[in-house]
């Protein structure tokens, strides 16, 4: 009961999950890439039901870079997996590119980048990037051409004949991004892709990812638990909170522009947005302990 009240209080108090979402809906002319309404996901654990997602509303327009941030257990990864049809919601509506998640998946609308590179060790980097194309039945010549284009995009030219285990962790994750992009999906879903990397490599990859986003114009959904990473990368930041997993704030970060360098992390605008994210995370935690 208490949780329910708190939830409403946040809604009314102008950290408006639904309001911000509606705002996003008015802006673009094209239909939303992801439209979520009243989505919930509950599963039964040994000690009672777990509300992984509760009444989530969200609209994502084409070409945006959306970060999902929140403490562990807030449902950010679950939400991403529901969008990818890797997890089944127990209530609510969800549309990806105008169709259900399953149809979107069967249509190969998205590329997914996991927490670990998940490259196949028996395939060379080139062959790993060609894997989705191979499964989709693309001809050999076309496969090679597309893969080498992606290799160039993630700066892995010259490593195509190496095996994944001969590359560094950062390079492996770049290869897995190239693999996700190889079949030119409209959506790129990334689940804490740089979580296992050290900060310097992570900064470097963040910069590269932004350039890649700018070049390809894809819609990116990015799960993270790092505030600087979320603010640096995103055009919008979705702040989430656990028990029950829900959205408590959606912050527009487009004031930072599209063309960002690591230096902007010192600017007042950046710090202001980072502060608001932190506030949101704190609000979500306040009644927890």
């Amino acid at each position: 009961m208490l949780k329910r009240v708190t939830n409403e209080w946040i809604g009314e108090n102008g950290m408006p999950a639904t309001l911000a979402a509606q705002g996003a809906m008015k802006e673009p002319a094209s239909p939303p890439v992801v439209a979520i309404k009243g989505l919930s996901l509950t599963y039964e654990a040994a000690d009672g039901p777990v509300y992984a997602l509760s009444n989530v509303d969200l609209q994502i327009a084409e070409g945006e870079f959306i970060s999902f941030i929140g403490p562990s257990g807030c449902g950010k990864t679950t939400l991403l997996r529901v969008i990818a049809d890797l997890e089944q919601p127990t209530g609510g509506d969800i549309h990806v590119n105008g169709v259900g998640p399953e149809e979107a998946r069967l249509r190969r609308d998205y590329g997914f980048v996991f927490q670990a590179p998940a490259l196949y060790p028996w395939r060379t980097i080139q062959k790993n990037i060609e894997l989705p194309l191979e499964i989709f039945g693309v001809s050999k010549a076309e496969r090679r051409e597309k893969a080498s284009k992606q290799l160039e995009l993630v700066n892995l030219k010259g490593f195509e004949n190496k095996f994944p285990w001969q590359l560094s962790g950062g390079m492996q994750q770049r290869a897995s991004i190239a693999r996700a992009l190889s079949f030119d999906p409209k959506l790129l879903l990334m689940d804490e892709p740089f979580g296992a990397l050290d900060e310097i490599v992570r900064d470097h990859l963040n910069e590269q990812l932004l350039k890649l986003w700018d070049k390809t114009g894809k819609t990116v959904l990015f799960v993270t638990h790092s505030i600087p990473e979320a603010v640096f990368l995103s055009s919008k930041i979705v702040v989430m909170s656990p028990r029950p997993g829900r959205i408590i704030d959606i912050i527009d970060a487009s004031v930072l522009g599209r063309d960002r360098t690591l230096d902007i992390r010192e600017t007042p605008e950046f710090l202001k947005i980072a502060h608001r994210v932190r506030e949101g995370l704190r609000a979500g935690h306040s009644y927890d302990d």
Partner: peptide
Amino acid sequence: GKLERDLMHSYAAGYWRSLLKL
């Protein structure tokens, strides 16, 4: 592994394809 399985699922790879390729 779970990730590799999810990856094949995300590619909508059928039973035989994921058997052979993974």
